[in-house]
């Protein structure tokens, strides 16, 4: 579903991403680990066509993101670290608005259902986003992804700054999405959450993917050791 082939990004002589080969299949949750500046966000931005690759290609459902950006974006949902929505609109209205941008039309009941599935309590649906906590906004982000019928999910440190309960709820939502066959690529610093939620792990360092493994191959302690070994 998500595929990077020799995908690289250079800024002059600075290398942001060494040629990267990575595949995320339907239903997989691929967690990218690494320090700040390791190339996690660059990878996600390349899949979103926010930046132009220097070489290689990024495919979403087999669609090249540079050649056919609108088609590839139709299949993607994206939740950045700090999801900002329209503060003057309610949660429900935001989902409706972004669905309209993605050329989807829903009744009020359908929109309510998406928000409920995303775990947002009913009484908040019609309140303005400006009154929402970060966790609530991330849930609206999930609702937008659900409404968009996204086949792939790109997440850039979505749980940073969330309290443990909210973080846990978010992980549960990701698992639900993956059960529906959504391919997820998530950049995160949270080793624990990555091991709990993810199906695959990748460790990045200085623009290179230095380690790939599946979560069932390793326990929490070994993952931390492995991670620190690469960082030192």
């Amino acid at each position: 579903m998500l595929q990077a082939s020799n995908l690289s990004k250079f800024y002059g002589h600075t290398v942001a991403l060494h040629p990267l080969n990575l595949t995320v299949q339907r239903g997989e949750i691929y967690c990218l680990l690494g320090a700040n500046g390791a190339g996690k966000t660059t990878t996600i931005n390349l899949f979103l066509n926010f930046i132009q690759p220097t070489d290689g290609s990024a495919l979403v459902a087999g669609i090249d993101v540079v050649a056919r950006p609108e088609e590839s974006k139709a299949k993607l949902a994206y939740i950045p670290e700090n999801l900002m929505l329209y503060p003057n609109l309610s949660g429900l209205e935001n989902v409706d608005y972004f669905s309209a941008l993605a050329r989807q039309r829903y009744s009020r009941d359908e929109l309510t259902a998406f928000l409920t599935q995303a775990g947002l309590q009913e009484e908040a649906h019609d309140k303005r986003i400006s009154t929402y906590s970060k966790g609530m906004r991330q849930k609206v982000g999930i609702a937008i992804a659900l409404a968009k019928k996204a086949e792939a999910l790109l997440l850039d440190e979505p749980t940073s700054g969330l309290d443990p309960k909210a973080s846990n709820e978010f992980s549960e939502l990701l698992k639900k999405m993956s059960q529906r066959g959504v391919a997820t690529l998530m950049a995160t610093h949270d080793l624990f959450r990555a091991k709990e939620t993810g199906t695959h792990l990748g460790i990045m360092k200085e623009g290179r993917l230095v380690e790939q493994l599946t979560t069932d191959q390793i326990n929490h302690t070994d993952l931390e050791k492995l991670y620190l070994k690469h960082m030192n």
């Binding site: 949902a77 994206y78 900002m84 972004f98 982000g141 790109l154």
Partner: peptide, 18 residues
């Protein structure tokens, strides 16, 4: 500046038209 542009640009739209 508010950050909502990132989400908008992730949608399948012509930014100019939008």
């Amino acid at each position: 500046e508010s950050g909502s542009l990132r989400l908008t640009l992730a949608q399948p739209i012509s930014v100019f038209g939008w």
